[in-house]
Amino acid sequence: MKYSAERIYVRFWKVEDASLLLDLQVRNREAIERTSASNRDDSYYSLEKQRALIESWDKKREEGIRYSFGIFLHTTDELVGEISLFEIILDSTPKWIVGYVTDILHQGKGYMSEALQCVLEFAKHETEITRIEAGAVPDNTGSIRVLQKAGFSACGSQSVPIQGTLKEHTMFAMDIQ
């Protein structure tokens, strides 16, 4: 499965991509940990853990509860980011969330806007997803701009635990049909 935009394409991760994913995670560790709700210790940043992570994403994709993609440049096949759709249960209500990271070496070039459009097309045509939500800390103007450009609308705020501290996030949502 591959969805293409002008400069990038997205595809599901393969186990052979584990070293690429590890490089992305290590290079962007500080930024990811500053915004991610998942706790990551040093063992997370190993090749074995990244292989296991990709394998778990494959299983979740088969179950229809997570779709994780690498974002690659058409011209060089270089990895420039990661984007995922995943289902969470909040207050017994299932919700689809989009999360993403652009490699620090490629931020500000519009690649994530293209990738998000690809993933929205995937969701619309390949899944039963009808609504996607996302959250961003208010000072993450780049992420907010990506969501707004894609057509997401602000729909309130929510406290999200980040590294043991609750941080207020502006929440965005989009209905897809």
Rank of each mutant, 00 (worst) to 15 (best):
T76Y: 08
P94T: 13
A5E: 08
A52D: 11
Q158A: 14
I89L: 11
L116E: 03
I8Q: 03
Y45P: 08
K2P: 00
A37L: 12
E33A: 08
L21G: 04
E114P: 06
S159Q: 14
A31F: 12
N39M: 13
G81Y: 02
I88M: 11
H125P: 01
S38K: 14
S68Y: 00
R40D: 10
E87P: 00
N39C: 14
K109Q: 14
I132E: 03
M1K: 07
L85M: 09
H106T: 07
L90E: 15
E82W: 10
A5N: 06
K95V: 14
R61P: 00
L20M: 12
D91K: 08
F152Y: 04
L147G: 03
W57A: 08
K2C: 03
D23W: 13
S43L: 10
Y67P: 03
G70H: 02
D139C: 11
G156W: 05
I162E: 04
D103H: 07
E16F: 04
A136C: 11
F12H: 09
A31D: 12
D77R: 11
L147H: 06
C155A: 10
T102Q: 09
T130W: 11
K2G: 00
T130S: 14
S159C: 13
G64H: 03
Y3L: 02
K60R: 15
F172V: 05
H74K: 07
Q177Y: 12
G64N: 07
A31I: 13
L24S: 05
G81F: 03
G164V: 11
K59F: 10
V98F: 04
D103I: 05
D175H: 12
Y111S: 01
Q50L: 06
P94G: 12
Y100Q: 03
A37I: 12
Q107I: 06
L85Y: 00
D175Y: 13
H74Q: 06
R145N: 11
E30D: 15
C118N: 01
F122S: 00
R11V: 01
E16S: 15
